[in-house]
Amino acid sequence: MTTTPPSPRLLLLNTVLLAVAGMALLGMPHRQQPQTPVAAPPAAPTTEPSLMAAMPSVHRPPAAGAPASTAPESSTPSAVESALPPHGEGATGDRALQRNLETAWPPDLPVADERELLTAGRALLRADATGLGRTRWPAVFPDTDQAVAPAFATAGFRIQAAIARRDGSPNKAVVHLVWAGTDRGGTFTDLRVTDWHFTRTVKKGAATWTPLSRT
């Protein structure tokens, strides 16, 4: 059996096609090998801005002669910061704030003691901010016989939340209060924080809680 040789025309066509294919391959860019990404060095830890930058000033009873609400201090426990809701929440925010405070600081006082401390703490704060009822605590407000303009107006004054807890000893306690009020300049501010400290005293065989003097 004999095989017919390919025609010269077919051989020429194949040669041209192979040449074109070779030139196309030579003209293509070489494929770059994938590079292994270099892991970036871990970022150095950063310190988040203090929560106090977005919080109202924290207050404790200041030195004699100045209202407690006008003396900022940063020693209030940070749990207050995390429990504070946004400003301007109104009564709804007050209820949420009270729940948050109670969750942050579980009760650690007998119910009767807590009730007594809360009643006294609320009255002390109102007397300190508005000037009403200061004569009840002459040791705390020794300037009751002087004409002292209150730092905050009675109208608009509101205690938003309050809790009483031990203060490092069964015979010491602190009342944490969050409140709102309008100052002399007419500026209303809520989420103000004030602490009142108490010590347990015994009079005529009965124990009672006495607010600590500022002197």
Rank of each mutant, 00 (worst) to 15 (best):
G205I: 06
A139W: 01
V178K: 00
P37Y: 03
D190C: 05
D167R: 01
E73V: 10
A127W: 00
T119W: 06
K204Q: 15
H197G: 05
A40N: 08
T36G: 03
S78H: 11
G168E: 11
G131N: 04
A43V: 09
P107H: 05
G90A: 00
D195W: 00
T4N: 09
L26F: 15
A43Y: 00
G168N: 10
P29L: 12
T215F: 12
A68T: 11
D183W: 02
V20E: 06
A149T: 13
P49W: 07
D113G: 01
P45D: 04
A123S: 12
P61E: 11
S50A: 15
R115S: 09
G133Y: 00
W105H: 07
P37L: 04
Q98K: 05
A173S: 11
P142N: 09
P86D: 09
P67G: 02
H176Y: 09
S7Q: 14
T103Q: 14
P170A: 11
A120K: 00
G22C: 14
T47C: 11
T208F: 05
T70L: 13
R192A: 12
D190K: 00
T70M: 06
A66L: 14
L212K: 07
P49F: 08
A112R: 10
M55S: 13
D167G: 05
A180H: 08
L18T: 10
R60H: 11
L132S: 03
L12I: 09
P37E: 07
R115C: 00
P41Q: 04
R134W: 02
D195K: 00
A39L: 15
R158Y: 06
W137C: 02
P34K: 05
T182V: 15
L13Y: 07
L25M: 11
T144E: 04
G156H: 04
R115D: 05
A96E: 10
A24K: 01
V58I: 15
P41C: 05
L177G: 01
G181L: 02
E48L: 15
P110Y: 08
G181H: 01
F141V: 00
V178S: 01
A83V: 05
T3D: 09
R134G: 01
T4I: 15
T15H: 07
G186Q: 13
T215P: 02
L25C: 12
P106D: 07
S82F: 15
T36F: 04
A39W: 08
H87T: 11
A63R: 06
N171K: 08
T210F: 02
T201V: 14
A19S: 09
A43H: 04
T201G: 13
D143W: 03
R166V: 08
G131T: 03
M23R: 13
T182P: 01
I163M: 03
R126Y: 04
V193M: 07
P142F: 03
P34L: 07
H176S: 12
N100L: 02
Q33S: 08
P110G: 08
F157C: 12
H59G: 06
T76S: 08
Q35E: 14
